[in-house]
Amino acid sequence: MNVLFLCTGNSCRSLISEALFNHLAPAGWRALSAGSQPTGKLNERALALLQRKGIPTEGYYSKSWEGLPVTPDIVVTVCASAAGETCPAYLGPVLRTHWGVEDPSHVTGTDDEIAAAFERAYAILRARIEAFLALPLDALQGDRAAFKAALDRIGTIATVVA
């Protein structure tokens, strides 16, 4: 099963999601990430955060949703609509869900405030990915409506980093 984490720029949240999912996922599950308007480069703070967490980042790059090497089975959009972003809508016969997360790369302030925003985004994405992977995946693959409902519920999980 292939899970596509989709955002507009594919430089921060979708990258974190892809790397984290691939780090935690069981055999047979693979994440990709892409953007509708990719920036062409990965966010340095996102890469540094992943490396601090012990999550490999080799081979990841900012890419368009056009020309993906595989067709995803599930598309998870991670744009934060509350921030006024235009979240792309992936067109294709896939299971879709939305897990909006505020973009830490848009946070301004001190280094500590920016670092805290990246930690918050990571914590939310990790909690959601762990909840996804804790689902009875084999059973849900045969029930699209139940799978979508479970994924949509996961998109409401919020975690606060102290």
Rank of each mutant, 00 (worst) to 15 (best):
A145C: 03
D143Q: 13
F118A: 11
A19Y: 07
F147Y: 15
G59W: 09
C7V: 06
L32F: 13
H98Y: 05
L6T: 04
C7S: 15
A131L: 01
G84D: 07
A145V: 09
I124R: 02
I129S: 00
E85D: 14
E102W: 08
V161G: 07
P26W: 08
S81I: 12
A34K: 02
T57Y: 04
I157Q: 08
P26V: 04
A31N: 06
G142Y: 03
A139W: 12
I157M: 00
I114Y: 05
S36Q: 01
P72R: 09
L47G: 06
R153Q: 15
V70G: 01
P38A: 08
H98K: 12
L137V: 08
E119P: 02
D111R: 09
I154A: 02
E85V: 11
R52N: 13
A162C: 02
S105L: 11
A123E: 09
F118L: 10
C87H: 06
A116T: 05
V78F: 10
S105V: 12
R52Y: 05
D138C: 02
V78I: 08
F147N: 05
P93Y: 09
W29H: 12
G92C: 12
M1G: 10
A82Y: 10
L24A: 00
N22L: 10
S17C: 15
H98Q: 13
A34I: 00
R52V: 07
R126Q: 15
L135E: 06
L133M: 04
R96G: 06
L49V: 10
G84P: 07
S64T: 13
K148Y: 03
L68E: 10
Y122S: 08
S33Y: 00
A145K: 12
A131R: 06
L125K: 03
L20P: 00
Q141G: 14
L32H: 07
L50P: 07
R52P: 02
L91Q: 15
A150T: 10
V3Q: 06
